[in-house]
Nucleic acid binder design. Structure first.
Length: 489
RNA sequence: GUCCCCAUCGUCUAGCGGCCUAGGACACCACCCUUUCACGGUGGAUACACCGGUUCAAAUCCGGUUGGGGACGCCA
């Protein structure tokens, strides 16, 4: 248990191998929330020891996503320059290699680690055998007891070796987990694991411990899949005589099939949700509630409310399935709470992206948002809502053609057009439209669907859709006349 | 296969031995509002996986079974 005087320091440690995925975002959020709630620090550390997969491009993406979510870090690479900021850097593991090597040497000298010259084939064979015999797939290295000097000589002779940690046998490790309580691991749950690859590059479990210790991390909130890693890490802490941080192993975020949400399966990155028109505050709100609950069961929470309410004692240990319908609802709720101006500002880029041509008038923007916002769940929903209004997108669908083919339709539309031409204002009001519609009814001597549907086609090109009383006032009279003419030709 | 974790409505969850004939939210259904949608309102259906204990009392504690998930890498 860290001393009370010790500062609360949490980190998020992604590997830059793609976009930030939703499970990672949730982990980052919890760490961020706890740091903020307790006046501590939130550190971004980059776990880029997998040279083959780590790229600066991915790193930038991950940082962009984090920033989009509003999870600002106090220490770590600067979002633009990537230059490390903070007293305990560098914060990219690829820049800390010398540190890991010196710790590895210390373990080697103390006999807590050893060089292993096993080939992949030898390892594979042992694994196969272990599986057949129904044992743990542990490796039993013949080099375990080699004196350091002997190994060093062999290396000097040109052989390459990995450095393995010597795991203890017959012991029990007890982890006091923040979300799971006491977790007991038999020490032989894991085999001698690699600390340094044959090229000298350290691996995750090792870097993680060294960095968490050196960066004075007080709490580690990470996904449940790391539970076995925590055992390995506890062993390293123990052999270095370092104090353990507090661990909390979060339940996993599962997909609709209750399988681990995986990067490979796609459709799970934070970035995609941004593109689909979700609000960062809504995404934070939703993912926070996957495996954690508000003490009063409040479900709609802003960023600050999340910080205020956050605590470590309300995690639910079971895996949680991601439910897009609920995310949509939360998103809609956050969206509708905004002012019409703000909503326009948010949907505008999506409308432009879709190539919609809409009036520039701010008053019109506001008016349109006022009528559409109860139909908006995500920002992209706006595209389909506004599409019928955009002149270049006016097209008569086949079903609309059928409506126009009715005997009475031509007369209805001609009447409608004539009445529009007799008007003077740029835009009709909802009431004005209803009056006009009534006059068409009288003059053309039709009613029911024979009245409504042709007019609708003359307005939006299809016989079904949003209420005309709402739509018509958003389309200029001039444009309505043109649309009617198109139907007549 | 081995080890670890988990188990309340379809989904997210509340519940931490009596307030539970199990509460909320999303989704679903019905009705109301509204001359179509949406929003909003009201109501409804739906869950403690199973079996044993412990206890005066168990969704809550213990054991087992079953089911689900995760980990078994020179990935993180």
């Amino acid at each position: 248990m860290p001393a009370a005087s010790e500062k609360v320091r949490l980190r998020f440690a992604p590997s830059p191998t793609g976009y930030l995925h939703i499970g990672g975002a949730r982990t980052a959020l919890y760490n961020y929330l706890y740091a903020r709630k307790n006046g501590g620090s939130f550190i971004l550390r980059i776990e880029d020891t997998d040279e083959a997969r780590s790229t600066d491009e991915s790193l930038r993406r991950v940082m962009e996503d984090l920033q989009w979510l509003g999870l600002e870090w106090d220490e770590g690479p600067h979002p633009e320059t990537l230059v490390d900021q903070g007293p305990l850097g560098p914060y990219r593991q690829s820049r800390r290699l010398a540190i890991y090597r010196s710790v590895a040497e210390e373990l080697l000298r103390a006999g807590k680690a050893y060089y292993c010259f096993m080939t992949d084939a030898e390892i594979e064979a042992q694994k196969q055998q272990a599986q057949q015999e129904g044992r743990h797939q542990h490796l039993n290295s013949p080099y375990q007891e080699w004196p350091l000097e002997r190994s060093l000589e062999r290396i000097k002779a040109g052989d390459s070796a990995v450095v393995r940690f010597r795991t203890s046998v017959g012991k029990e490790y007890v982890l006091h987990d923040l979300v799971r309580g006491e977790v007991r691991f038999p020490s032989d749950m894991v085999g001698d694991f690699v600390l340094l690859r044959s090229g000298g590059m350290p691996v995750y479990n090792f870097c993680c411990v060294v960095d968490d210790h050196l960066m004075k991390i007080s709490h580690v909130l990470r996904a449940e899949e790391h539970l076995p890693n925590s055992l390995r890490q506890m062993m390293i802490y123990e052999s270095m005589g370092w104090e353990l941080p507090r661990f909390g192993h979060l339940s996993l975020v599962l997909d609709e099939d209750r399988k681990k949400l995986s990067k490979r399966r796609g459709a799970t990155s934070c970035h995609e949700f941004k593109l689909e028109g979700f609000l960062p505050e809504a995404l934070n709100n939703y993912i926070c509630l996957l495996g954690w609950s508000h003490p009063e069961e409040k479900e709609i929470l802003t960023g600050t409310e999340l910080i205020d309410a956050f605590s470590l004692d309300r995690f639910h240990p079971a895996g949680a399935a991601f439910d897009i319908a609920k995310l949509r609802w939360i998103n809609a709720t956050h969206l509708r709470a905004k002012s019409d101006d703000e909503i326009w500002r948010l949907i505008d880029p999506f409308l432009k992206e879709a190539g919609l041509k809409l009036p520039e008038d701010p008053a019109w923007h506001k008016r349109s948002v006022a009528v559409f916002k109860t139909n908006l769940e995500t920002l992209v929903d706006a595209v389909e809502l506004y599409r019928p209004i955009s002149d270049p997108h006016f097209a008569i669908v086949p079903e609309g053609q059928e409506t126009l083919a009715w005997e009475s339709s031509r007369k209805v539309i001609e009447t409608w057009k004539g009445l529009l031409q007799a008007e003077t204002s740029d835009h009709l009001t909802g009431e004005g439209f209803l009056k006009l519609q009534d006059r068409v009814k009288e003059m053309a001597q039709v009613k029911g669907k024979f009245l409504f549907m042709p007019i609708r086609v003359a307005v939006i090109g299809k016989p079904h859709g949003t209420e005309l009383k709402i739509l018509v006032p958003l389309i200029s009279r001039h444009s309505l006349i043109q649309r009617a003419e198109k139907c007549l030709s």
